[in-house]
Design a protein around this nucleic acid. Sequence first.
DNA 1: GCACGCATCATTGTATACAATCATGTCGGC
DNA 2: GCCGACATGATTGTATACAATGATGCGTGC
Lengths: 230, 230
Amino acid sequence: MNTVEKTTSKGAADTVADSLSVAIHEHRLAPGTKLGEDEIGEIFSVSRTIVRSALQSLAHQQLVDIQRNKGAFVARPSLREAREVFEARELLEPRTARSAAMHATPEDVDLLNLHIREEHDALAAADRGKALRLSGQFHIDIARIADQTTIAAFIEALIARSSLIIALYWRRQAALCESVAHHDLVSAIATGDGDRAEELMRSHLVDLHSALDLRDAPETAGSLRDVLQL
Amino acid sequence: MNTVEKTTSKGAADTVADSLSVAIHEHRLAPGTKLGEDEIGEIFSVSRTIVRSALQSLAHQQLVDIQRNKGAFVARPSLREAREVFEARELLEPRTARSAAMHATPEDVDLLNLHIREEHDALAAADRGKALRLSGQFHIDIARIADQTTIAAFIEALIARSSLIIALYWRRQAALCESVAHHDLVSAIATGDGDRAEELMRSHLVDLHSALDLRDAPETAGSLRDVLQL
DNA sequence: GCACGCATCATTGTATACAATCATGTCGGC
DNA sequence: GCCGACATGATTGTATACAATGATGCGTGC
């Protein structure tokens, strides 16, 4: 049901990586946070070998930044990267939404509705982090439904980085994640309306993009600001 | 000059990963080949720790397939994956070529011409593997020139997998890699003709795609066939 | 009082040792 | 003679020990 089946014996490293990944997605781990190997190893009761493997995995999808002889840190996407990530999403996701609308089965639609409900519940419980993560999960679900594994993997990576970007550059304080957009998307997908799904996804991403402050923040001031907000 | 600068101290694992990656790209390591940890460690005179790290890195970009308690093998993309990879390339690369035509500097064009020359030389020297690798490198160069790091990384991953796909499903025996297509592309990029670059890239990829035998090969017969060709 | 250099310490990089799992080949039974 | 169970060997998974590098803080000299 999840990303990896239990039956294939997931491996301890993946468990650690998943936990860290979720924590980052839920904004419980802020960009720039140092991820010490011993520290994490103690938390999960595994050796540094496992932690190291997990961190390398996260580094590969650019969720963490490993600096040689310095350690691993939760990544801080630059403005440039932020722009690129959203440009890439705007290129890939609308087409994927269209494809999802074509391929979706009733069970797929049920799954999407379930996830929307969970997202809504999290928001009602004032669990902003969880709502944010589920919001991203929704986009990944759509990519999965579209039955394009390769592109779905790309989108998954982009959404992961989007979470970091939102943590760094989010502007609108309240009224985030208007899940109404997601709801409309599901209805378009449920009725197999590819055109509408594509357009809804496009405008949804433009909305998201425009809710970020990607204009001219100083590239290097990040570390300072980070210290202050701690 | 390469993917990673020497000055940042590349790390032994990356060296091993790069060597293996090149070997795969040059079809010196066939899909399905077992990559034993001790074996590789002895070749490069490093411990299994390093080898393991390198293999995990390659696994993440799906160049090798790691099966728990079984080992690492050069990946064998399925027909489905092969189709998806080329569909994704056809989605991403034409637009990237257009962007490259817009951004290319004279030095960029020089670099492309240099690489085409190297490719031609390799072909003249009957070094089919090297020519193939350089042919892929050419596409990566274009993505780099397009100045879209994120998408360039995706394309790089797709080209890596394309190399495996070509190894498995290539149909036309002779007359491969008509570098004339690359040459035309460079001229379009050099003159800043985005439309033409986009169209040339699109047709080049369609050519490539159609030179593969992706029709109905049995998904599971691979292992058998592999044994026979050894 | 400030700055530079050095020593100490903490953390990461790598190698090796041990444990667990899977593959292979042999032996016994049918 | 063929099939299955078991034992042995090889290979991978994990933990730990050692080495190397970077960070911190103190002391000395100016």
